[in-house]
Amino acid sequence: MSYLAPETLEQALSALADPGPMRLVAGGTDVFPALGDRPLRGGLIDLTRVAEMKGIAARDGGWRIGGAVTWREILKTDLPPCFDGLKAAAREVGSVQIQAAGTLAGNLCNASPAADGIPALLALDAEVELASRDGTRRLPLADFVTGVRQTALRPGEILSALHIPVQPEGARSSFLKLGSRRYLVISIVMVSAVLWCRDGRIAGARIAVGAASPVARRLPALEAALTGLAPEALGAVTTPDHLAPLQPIGDVRGSADYRRAAVAELCDRALRKALHG
């Protein structure tokens, strides 16, 4: 088995182009457990040392989050309130040890329906940067994750960074997760909200729900319904119609009906949390 630890993106991409099956790995917190008892076939390319994939940088009013950035780094970095939701998600991704090893990009590439990182990044309108030897392309996150454990990543491509666009002035955010125990739990459902106000009214909102459909989904009808509402009076705003994009399933963690009911409540809670802390 070969284990490569490239230090530049170019080295990483050329290693990926070499014949023989090679897997990309960063924190390994999904890759290794998923192996179970099966041996690793082929080799590993460890992306954690790639210079271009490190660090969080403000850029053109937005932010570039390197593909090797861990949840812990998100938590440690001083970021504006619109990132509070992402930070809250960072605190809920597994244990502290997992947060120190696991990366945001890895969470996206693993594409679990219950990935804690995806709703918060969808609510931030994130884009992914996909590098290959042919150049770099960018995709909205919603187009990148295509199904249960399926992404638009092409052979030879590496998710080299996330881009968070300029957020509306005063944007605030939240993330809430529901599980049968209080912590260290695989989500039954989770919700992230980003919203902003003008002249005492909600001027816009982005709300995304995870673990209630094969891929985490935004709720455009709810977002539209919020616009123009007064934040002080915000009660139970989420209606079943708003949840139309979701297709929850029943599993060992909760029934489909329970998920549908819980999502509505969790959306309302996430909105209140974003507005009022």
């Binding site: 599980g179 049968s180 125990r181 209080r182 912590y183 260290l184 739990v185 695989i186 060992v252």
Partner: peptide
């Protein structure tokens, strides 16, 4: 099926 401590949920301190 839930044959590990991620899926077999014993209480955590916060519970």
């Amino acid at each position: 099926i839930n044959h590990d401590l991620a899926n077999y949920e014993v209480p955590v301190h916060a519970d």
